[in-house]
Amino acid sequence: MAAETGTPTTLTLKSNDDELFSVAESAAILSVTIRNMVEDGCAGGVIPLDNVDGKTLASVITYMNGISAIPADEEKKKSYRDKFLSDKDFETLADMVLAANYLNMSCLMDAVSAKIAQVMEKKSVGWVRRKFGIENDYTPEEEAAVKEEHKWTFEGVETDDDN
């Protein structure tokens, strides 16, 4: 996507893989990080966002435009967020949560964290290790002991489908 020649209310954002995006300032300032840059007068040219890749940034901008088009109705905003996140896989959600944190967008951060929690709630320990890239540092004996202590919590764990 190429940057449009901006009216004063349009900003150009650059992802860390050098993709350019134009977005209405009113939507972009949902990000406190961007808002601060605008207020500091750094928004004249291109705003580089070093921690967000193009794919994720495109998604975040879709969200920014979608949510800022909804008037102050918390229920409608919530249902927009639910719908927006409903078809995202874990990897996308993980990228989004990092982006939301970097861009300091509390409403997106809140929604994505809740979505990740909802996705992982019934998952297995192995699934969480794989998805979060966590090394199992227990010895088999230690792991068995920890599991034994909370045996009942393993009831109803979903079989891994890696989604």
Binding site: A117, E121, K122, V125, E143
Partner: peptide, 30 residues
């Protein structure tokens, strides 16, 4: 150690939303 890029602050932000039952289960993660 591997491809984990999620800082602990964000992990915390996700974990507190889980029910206690899931948290007890995930004590076995690491």
């Amino acid at each position: 150690s591997t491809n984990l890029r999620i800082p602990e602050g964000i992990i915390l932000e996700i974990l507190w939303r889980l029910p206690v039952k899931s948290l007890l289960k995930f004590k076995s993660v690491s």
